[in-house]
Simulated assay, not measured.
Amino acid sequence: MDDGQVISTATDLGGFLRSRRERLTPDTAGIPPGTTRRRVPGLRREELADLAGVSLGYYTRLEQGVSASASDAVIDALASALRLDPAEHDHLRVLAAPRRPSRPPVRRSVLRPAVRDLLGALPGTAAIVIDHRTDVLGWNRLGHALLAGHLDAAAPDSPHRPNLARLLFLDPHHRALYRDWPAKAQVTVAALHQAAASHPGDPGLERLVGQLALDSAEFARLWARRPVRTCAYYLRELDHSVVGRLTLHNETVTLPDDDQRLGLFHAPPASPSADALRLLENT
């Protein structure tokens, strides 16, 4: 395979390495304090290269995007030196992997009829399906009422269907739903970073990130921090405009088609939140 047959995410790789290097303090890395004043907030490149056992020149090429990829051994050494957690380590591997050229995905994700039927067969549970861009592909009646009752329920089938990331940062109604909005925002940006690493060259995803970075200073700031950690389960504290405060279990299940994810919001039986969901479903 020649150089023209590999597409690299070297720029994103360098940015991620730089963000984690600047986050790590010399004291945390076990480096004795020096006698000269430090100009950088974290480790110097030469310090990280020494900790990882690679040459300064090689590490500099990685961070500057000159080198397109790195071996598993180098990635593991850098992850150890940077004190990355497992999720960050996995993300670094994805960023460092060479890419075969592929036509950017231009088609819209489509919800299978069986999955649409499943959404309607979940009484008492708010359900929604999104793709890797966080476009809403479908939701049941309760999912729509819980997450975006102020929007047209048929919107997922329209040319301009809702996008959860856009709603979270740009729609005050949706934003007000989350009592812990900063945590939800960080998880959403982390998911988009992982999607960008897994789907390089996706024009729809690039347009979404570009729009959010222009229209939301909060998004731009979070995006620059390059958060990674996500989870498939959360306990959501919500303030709904119709039924008030809710405490819901939020489970995320990955579907086998087109990186689609099924989100479920439910409450323990006979709890106040379950009663509120029932009321909302029948409103």
Score class of each variant (00 low, 15 high):
D3S: 14
Q5V: 06
I7H: 14
S8M: 11
T9Q: 14
T9I: 03
T11L: 13
D12P: 09
D12G: 13
F16P: 12
F16C: 07
L17M: 13
S19F: 01
S19A: 13
T25I: 08
P26Q: 05
A29C: 11
A29Q: 11
I31G: 10
P33R: 14
G34I: 09
G34D: 05
T35C: 06
P41H: 08
G42W: 11
R44E: 06
R45P: 00
L48M: 13
D50C: 07
L51E: 08
L56Y: 11
L56N: 09
G57N: 14
G57I: 02
Y58E: 06
Y58V: 07
Y58P: 03
Y59N: 03
R61W: 14
G65I: 05
A73F: 08
A73G: 02
L78V: 05
A79F: 01
A81L: 02
R83E: 09
R83A: 03
P86D: 10
P86Q: 05
P86F: 08
E88H: 06
H89Q: 14
H91Y: 15
R100G: 11
P104Q: 03
V106F: 04
V110K: 12
D117T: 14
G120P: 11
L122Y: 11
L122H: 10
G124L: 13
G124V: 12
A126L: 01
I128P: 02
I128E: 08
R133L: 02
G138C: 00
W139R: 04
W139H: 11
N140T: 04
R141I: 10
H144A: 06
A145E: 06
L146Q: 09
D157L: 06
A165H: 03
H173K: 13
R175G: 09
L177Q: 03
Y178C: 04
R179D: 09
W181F: 04
T188I: 08
T188S: 12
L192V: 01
H193N: 06
Q194M: 07
A195E: 01
A196Y: 01
A197Q: 05
P200H: 12
D202M: 11
D202C: 13
G204E: 03
E206Q: 15
E206V: 09
R207L: 10
R207N: 09
L212K: 13
A213P: 06
L214I: 05
L214D: 15
A217M: 07
F219W: 14
A220R: 15
L222V: 08
W223D: 05
R226I: 15
C231N: 12
L235P: 09
L235A: 14
L235K: 13
L235E: 15
R236S: 12
S241F: 02
G244F: 00
G244I: 04
G244R: 02
L246M: 14
L246E: 01
H249A: 13
E251L: 15
P256D: 08
D258Q: 15
D259A: 08
D259T: 02
G263V: 10
F265N: 01
F265H: 05
F265T: 00
P268W: 03
A270T: 07
P272I: 03
S273R: 10
L280Y: 07
E281L: 09
T283V: 12
